[in-house]
Simulated scan of single mutants.
Amino acid sequence: MEERYLELCKLFGLDAASPLSDKQIEEIRDYFGGLPKALESYYRICGGCSGMNSAQDFLLTADKTYHYDLKKWECGDYCVFCVENQSVSVWAFRRSDIDKDDPPVYETYDNGKTWFETCDRLSQYLISHAYLNAVFSFEYSDEDVIEADESHAKAIAEEFPHVDADSGLYTGVKFYQPFDDTLIAVMNNGEEGYQVFFASRDEDHLEETADILYPLCGYEE
């Protein structure tokens, strides 16, 4: 998983790891009573990258590095480590899984009344969330949300290289990468179909992607 995390750093244009400090990590460990290996490794490689951890949703720390205070969420049966930008959804691992290397991740949007599994591996969840934050933090993006149906989603999958960063995040998301610095996120929007977002660190690559993506989704040029 460490290699995948280092790949995330490259995705965000970093030449090396961008960690949280040892003090920050120990504060989190003390609050939870331990740390799964997948989460600690992420903290030590990617935890200090602002775009990766606060562009759309927020990684939690005890010192509010990314706005929200970890200790706002009581650490009961679930240890909450990430929060959605409006504090509606939060993501956690079970306290009973704290000694596992790569436990499942659970989400709640009703203040912990009900929890459902959003990813079977913590490392995959972190990678998926990093890719989603990339789409919302890259310099060049299209402000419009592309509304798509099943046929459009299939066409995107056939046209662009798929990235192993999918998860059940929110209602499910898949990622495609036309260029090393360009991403497409296809989010399942339930009965309403799909929502498609894309962004790039290169303006020309964004335009090239748009020229293919919009017609694929039934939009006229």
Results as ranks from 00 to 15, higher is better:
E2G: 02
L6I: 00
K10G: 00
K10C: 03
L11E: 00
F12H: 05
D15L: 11
D15K: 11
A16N: 11
P19L: 02
P19C: 02
L20V: 00
D22T: 07
K23P: 02
E26Y: 03
E27N: 01
I28D: 00
L35W: 11
P36A: 10
P36I: 10
K37D: 12
K37Q: 12
L39V: 11
S41L: 12
S41V: 15
Y42L: 07
I45E: 00
I45Y: 01
G47Q: 01
S50C: 14
G51N: 10
M52F: 08
S54T: 10
Q56I: 08
L60I: 04
T61W: 00
T61N: 01
Y66N: 05
E74R: 08
E74W: 04
Y78D: 03
V83F: 06
V90Y: 06
W91V: 05
S96P: 10
I98A: 07
D101Y: 12
V105S: 04
V105M: 07
E107H: 12
G112F: 04
E117C: 04
E117K: 04
T118I: 10
D120M: 12
R121G: 00
L122Y: 04
Q124T: 05
I127N: 00
Y131M: 08
L132A: 13
L132I: 09
V135H: 14
F136N: 08
F138L: 14
D142G: 08
D144E: 13
D144I: 14
E147M: 13
D149Q: 07
S151H: 11
A153W: 01
I156A: 12
A157Y: 06
E158Q: 13
D166N: 04
S167N: 14
S167M: 14
L169E: 15
Q177M: 04
P178M: 05
F179K: 06
F179I: 10
D180M: 14
D181F: 05
T182W: 05
L183M: 09
V186Y: 00
V186G: 03
N189P: 12
N189Q: 14
E191P: 05
E192K: 12
G193N: 01
G193W: 02
Y194D: 06
S200I: 10
D202H: 13
L206C: 08
D211G: 15
L213W: 10
Y214P: 02
Y214E: 03
L216W: 08
